[in-house]
Write a protein that binds this DNA or RNA. Sequence first.
DNA 1: AACCAGGACGTGA
DNA 2: TCACGTCATGGT
Length: 238
Amino acid sequence: MGNRQQRVLAFVYRWLMDRYGPQGWWPLVACDGVNPTKTGATKGYHPGDYTYPRTDDQRVEICVGAILTQNTAWTNVEKALGNLQRAGRLSLSALAATPVEELRELIRPAGYYNQKAAYLQNLVAFLMAHEPGDITREALLTCKGVGNETADSILLYAFSRPEFVIDAYTKRIFLALGLCDERSSYMSMKQQVESAISPDVVVYQEYHALLVEHAKQHYNKKPFGIGDPLINIVKALK
DNA sequence: AACCAGGACGTGA
DNA sequence: TCACGTCATGGT
């Protein structure tokens, strides 16, 4: 029964990669990656280069971005990250030394800045207290402010672990393609993909990024999925 | 002028 | 478990 879903998920990945090309997630402020074929925003992305993150600071930047982007447009996150970098606060030690009032002001453009400032301080303390090899999904989830998607984003993009990320876009697309229903849980969808696509950090990184890019084309205004060619293609698939 | 953005938490059924 | 209110800025 999972056999068709398996084929569909593999097909969708190839189709998206064919259409959009490598996405080069996660974006980094101090990264000069450029891909002229990419259709979406290219700033800070490094398509085809899977050697990131290269430094502890880049790892921290990804973790910070994962918190800041919660229910927030990435353009707003970029402003906050820019503030942090200009203030020299985009490192673990600098963040740990930043008073929460200052942190709030720096990340204000990302919204929910009171909550997120506290979440960031939690996460910074957590990261300082754990070795990279020591960081498990369960451990991350004990941080207040780190839920399923944020944990998986951190693991996949900052620590190169094969954890598939589900987000609101993924659910919209999977709904339209008949791969899940309205009340499918985060974990059920994650496990569905992870049992269909063998664990591979690069594939998981690209697949999630490709789903976001595709959703930005066809799934960010209601009714979702209008004009998405995948719907009919997948429907015709056996 | 609504509506949505790469969610998570606290609460009450 | 799960549905609902809350958190907040900025672009379309």
